[in-house]
Design a protein around this nucleic acid. Structure first.
Length: 662
RNA sequence: GCCCCCCUAGCUCAGUCGGUAGAGCGUUUCCAUGGUAAGGAAAAGGUCACCGGUUCGAUUCCGGUGGGGGGCUCCA
């Protein structure tokens, strides 16, 4: 047999004709898949003269995806071992893991997952080789006749979406056989691949949970049972991932909301409707107050509007046509009846408001407007009510009643670019003031299928948004066709302290409402012109932002937001009066302070303050009293002794004023 | 809305293979006066989410309602 001349990781090499990548990379244990001429392939792939081969490490993004995809396969094999009558859906890799959808005889429960997991461990231990086999549509349909979902995918092959593409994407139809020790197939699955060389290349995995999912993502389709799992190149990395999840759970705003006495969702009120307790109220008010001040400085004017309106307003705005499903049903008022029960006077329908913009439009319209008034920036903390489907509610971040920090800006077309630019800067700087640092921007463009307005207007507005976004020197992600029907938008995505991204602010141009409301202003030449309208929510919802900040800070708010900024802890009862006097001066300086005069021991008081995540503990004992001083203990356990009362106040008020974290 | 799981004291959870319940923390009172993350003791506190059914008997089994969780779909 002749040798083949190929290039491996950039170096010209010569190999035996029947050598495969798995032999080439035999010494590199982390290479689990490769690229041949730029295409991701199995390590068992045949090579030919002139091929350019590149080893892919299990730790690279592509290697991880293959690891997880293969682990999904092992899971499917295990499921069919344990529950023979289970039909297979799809099983792609996802961020940090994988899932596989099944149609089982009955839904899985937690004990089933344990059984499946141990069956998986056996398969991994077995070291089954993943063997690729090219087939034809006819053969595949025959072979997989007992797998109706797979057959459906084969039928769809011509027009596959991205999720199904791991099953049947690519130019060839392939089946992967898992070969047992004797080289005979023990299990097969329709799949595009590529896969790890063998199941023993799966170093660490864990099944996470089972859930339901609609087949091919449509609620019109049957519901399948999905099992989520995760897989990593090492046990350590798996453990680190599980620790991150545990950390996220500790930070969960729903848990912290209870622990720190911030808010609750009394059953009596109803799903998705929160009450804020005094401590949560302080945080919220601090958030709102600062926002008000900054908006005032930026030229916003404050307005108020009612929570209820007659149907006509939302007919005019179009919300009843498009979003009535998301609105609380109407209440009928002022209906009068004849004695026989028939209607004498028809009632009026009133709706809870799901949005503030129609009201702001009415304010704009309340009198004639001149170009001299523009840009007119109307701001409101407007509480809205949306009848969210019960399954989507999530603590305070997805609720049925919430308060938007909502602003609508009316400006001329000429003013729009500058307005968008300064708006985006304002928004980002304000988010930074609240402690978020890491952002990227997303530009959502027109979906021609469902949108209104002139092409030229869309292009102009989209370009103005793009220009404003680029000026920020942040990563800009394009969301092609993702805009709402009435105009393009920019959304600000923020990363929190443990790296999760949250969609925060949105800035949205609206071509629809000014027209529907026939908004006009008098231009310089006396003609009537239609203003451009910009929707802008910074927090989106105060409640949601509250939840995000709670998780970002893990409940340890910076002093300016902390419900209790300083707590007094006397070393012994004898110093309570002294400390009480000191704290009065703290209070007079505007510091939110409490005195722990309970009969707990001081060690216990420190523990309590620590668990309540109070930024400053003000401790006083004999030495402090004698010196007219206090000791400050911080959340990180550090302490400064013998600080004069004035210095202590200065330090605390400075951290509040500067909005720094301590 | 759909699928699965859950609901026991203020909180976190045990428990009852059907005979009306328990811990820790918290709360109250008493003792202890203590220099850096839980001092000690006692007491109070529960229609076992709610409504039906089965049963001699239901917190436990079954059905429904409400609420919560994990996903899917959705998020103007």
């Amino acid at each position: 047999m002749s040798a083949l001349a190929i290039k491996v990781d950039g170096k010209e090499t010569s190999i035996e004709a029947d050598s495969k990548p798995t032999h080439i990379f035999a010494e590199q244990k982390d290479i689990v898949v490769c690229k041949i001429n730029g295409v991701l392939r199995d390590l068992w792939t045949d090579l030919k003269d002139g091929d350019v081969v590149e080893g892919i490490s299990i730790s690279s993004p592509e290697g991880l995806a293959v690891l997880r995809h293969s682990t999904a396969h092992v899971m499917a094999q295990a499921v069919q071992q344990v529950f023979a009558q289970t039909r297979l859906g799809i099983g792609p890799p996802i961020t940090d893991g994988f899932y596989y959808d099944f149609d089982p005889e009955r839904p899985f429960n937690p004990e089933d997952l344990e059984k499946i997991e141990s069956a998986m461990r056996k398969i991994v231990k077995d070291g089954q080789r993943f063997k690729r086999r090219v087939t034809t549509e006819t053969d595949a349909l025959k072979e997989l006749a007992h797998e109706p979902y797979k057959c459906e995918l084969i039928g769809l092959k011509s027009g596959v979406g991205d999720e199904a593409s791991v099953e049947v994407g690519g130019t060839e139809l392939t089946i992967y056989d898992n070969l047992g020790r004797d080289g005979q197939p023990v299990w097969s699955d329709l799949c595009r691949g590529p896969h790890l060389p063998s199941t023993k290349n799966i170093p660490a995995f864990k099944l996470m949970r089972s859930a339901a999912a609609y087949w091919r993502g449509s609620e019109k389709n049957p519901m399948l049972q999905r099992i989520y799992g995760t897989a990593w190149p090492s046990q350590d990395e798996l453990n680190a991932y599980l620790e991150l999840l545990a950390e996220a759970e500790k930070r969960d705003h729903r848990r912290l909301g209870t622990e720190l006495d911030l808010f609750s969702f009394p059953e009596e009120i109803g799903s998705g409707l929160a009450v804020f307790h005094p401590k949560g109220g302080i945080v919220r008010r601090a958030m709102e107050d600062y926002s008000r001040i900054r908006h005032e400085e930026e030229g916003y004017e404050f307005v108020y509007s009612p929570h209820l309106t007659k149907a006509a307003l939302f007919q005019k705005s179009g919300h009843l046509d498009w979003y009535s499903e998301g609105m609380y049903p109407p209440m009928i008022l002022d209906e009068e009846h004849h004695p026989d029960g028939t209607i004498k006077r028809a009632g009026q329908q009133y709706y809870m408001k799901p949005m503030n913009c129609p009201f702001h439009n009415l304010i704009f319209q309340s009198r004639g407007r001149s170009y001299r008034e523009l840009p007119l920036r109307l701001f409101e903390f407007g509480t809205v009510y949306r009848y969210e489907k019960s399954g989507v509610l999530h603590g305070i971040t997805r609720a049925r009643g919430f308060t938007q920090d909502d602003a609508h800006i009316y400006c001329t077309k000429e003013q729009m670019p500058a307005e968008l630019d300064s708006l985006l800067t304002f928004v980002l700087n304000l988010l930074r003031d609240y402690g978020l640092e890491d952002f990227y921007l997303e530009l959502s463009t027109r979906n021609p299928e469902k949108s209104v307005g002139e092409d030229a207007d869309w292009i102009e507005a989209t370009e103005a948004l793009r220009k404003a976004a680029l000026a920020q020197n942040l990563e800009l992600v394009l969301d092609e066709g993702g805009a709402a029907f009435y105009g393009p938008k920019i959304s600000v995505q923020a990363k929190d302290a443990i790296g999760r991204t949250w969609q925060m602010s949105t800035i949205q141009v609206d071509f629809q409402l000014p027209q529907r409301f026939e908004l006009e202003y008098s231009a310089t030449d006396g003609s009537r012109k239609r203003p451009v309208m910009i929707h802008r929510a910074l927090f989106g919802s105060i409640e949601r932002f509250f939840g995000v900040l709670t998780e970002h800070y893990s409940g340890a708010f910076p002093p300016w937001l902390a419900p209790v900024q300083a707590i007094g802890i006397p070393v012994a009862d004898a110093f309570t009066d002294y400390l009480d006097g000191v704290l009065k001066t703290f209070k007079n300086s505007g510091i939110r302070v409490e005195l722990d005069s309970s009969d707990d021991r001081m060690q216990k008081k420190i523990r309590n303050a620590q668990m309540q995540k109070v930024p400053f503990m003000i401790i006083a004992g004999e030495e402090d009293q004698a010196a007219g001083a206090v000791s400050i203990r911080y959340r990180n356990g550090e302490q400064k002794n013998g600080i004069s009362v004035d210095d202590a106040i200065a330090e605390i008020t400075k951290s509040i004023k500067d909005r720094t974290q301590v």
